[in-house]
C-alpha cells in the first residue's frame, strides 16, 4: 500500500482528518467518519468549543475529555434526517461569522461567560428553519441535546457520578424515603 492510500485508510479507521500532502493546502479535507455532514477539522474544533462551553469542566469533567464533540457529530451524521442535518451543518459552519455579526465578537474569541450568553441567545433565536437564524438555532439545540445525551450516558457519568446498575437483582415497590 502506498503512503497516500495508507493515510486514507487511517483516516477512515480513526475517523480523524488527514491532510493529503499532494492536495491543495488551501482546501481542508472532509472528516471521513461523518460522510453525511461534510465537516472539517476546523468545524470539529469549533463544535468542541461549543460543547466545552456547555460542559466547561468546572464541577464535572470537560466535554472534550469525554469525546462529546465526536458523539454529537456521530449522532448528527447517523440519526438525523436530511433536513435536520442541513440545519445543523449550516449552523455550525456559519456560527463564528454569525456570532461576530450578531454579538460583535466571533464565538471562537469569546471567554466562557460571553460564550455561554451567545449559546443561550442562539438557542432562542426566532426565524424560519431555513434561515441563518434558524440554522443557528437548530445547530445549537441539536448540539445541546446530543451533548447532554452523550454526557449522561458516558462511562464517566454512569460509573462515577450516578452509577448505573446492570444487574439490580431487586425491586421494592414501596421504599421509604429518608428525610422525606
Amino acid at each position: 500500500m502506498d503512503r497516500r492510500s495508507a493515510m486514507k485508510q487511517l483516516a477512515i479507521l480513526t475517523g480523524g482528518a488527514v491532510m493529503m500532502p499532494a492536495c491543495n493546502f488551501s482546501e481542508e479535507s472532509i472528516l471521513q467518519a461523518y460522510q453525511n455532514l461534510k465537516v472539517t477539522q476546523s468545524d470539529h474544533a469549533l463544535l468542541s468549543q461549543v460543547t466545552n462551553t456547555i460542559f466547561p469542566g468546572t464541577t464535572l469533567k470537560k466535554a472534550e475529555e469525554l469525546m462529546i464533540p465526536d458523539f454529537v457529530l456521530l449522532m448528527s451524521n447517523d440519526c438525523l434526517n436530511a433536513d435536520q442535518q442541513n440545519g445543523f451543518v449550516k449552523g455550525l459552519k456559519g456560527w463564528d461569522d454569525f456570532s461576530k455579526k450578531t454579538f460583535g465578537k466571533a464565538f471562537s474569541k469569546m471567554d466562557q461567560n460571553e460564550a455561554e450568553e451567545a449559546i443561550i441567545k442562539g438557542m432562542a433565536l426566532e426565524g424560519e428553519n431555513d434561515s441563518e437564524a434558524g440554522h443557528t438555532r437548530q445547530f445549537l439545540n441539536t448540539t445541546k441535546r446530543f451533548a447532554l445525551q452523550g454526557y449522561l450516558n458516558s462511562e464517566y457519568f454512569m460509573t462515577e457520578i450516578k452509577p448505573y446498575e446492570l444487574v439490580p437483582a431487586r425491586f421494592y415497590g414501596s421504599k421509604l424515603i429518608e428525610n422525606a
Binding site: 462551553t53 456547555i54 464541577t59 464535572l60 455561554e116 447532554l148 457519568f157
Partner: peptide, 19 residues
C-alpha cells in the same frame, strides 16, 4: 434540571434528582 449550560448545568447534573 438540565435546562442550563456551563457550570450551572454541571452542578445540576451532579446533584441528586428531586422527587
Amino acid at each position: 434540571d438540565y435546562s442550563g449550560i456551563g457550570d450551572e448545568l454541571e452542578k445540576s447534573m451532579a446533584k441528586a434528582p428531586e422527587y
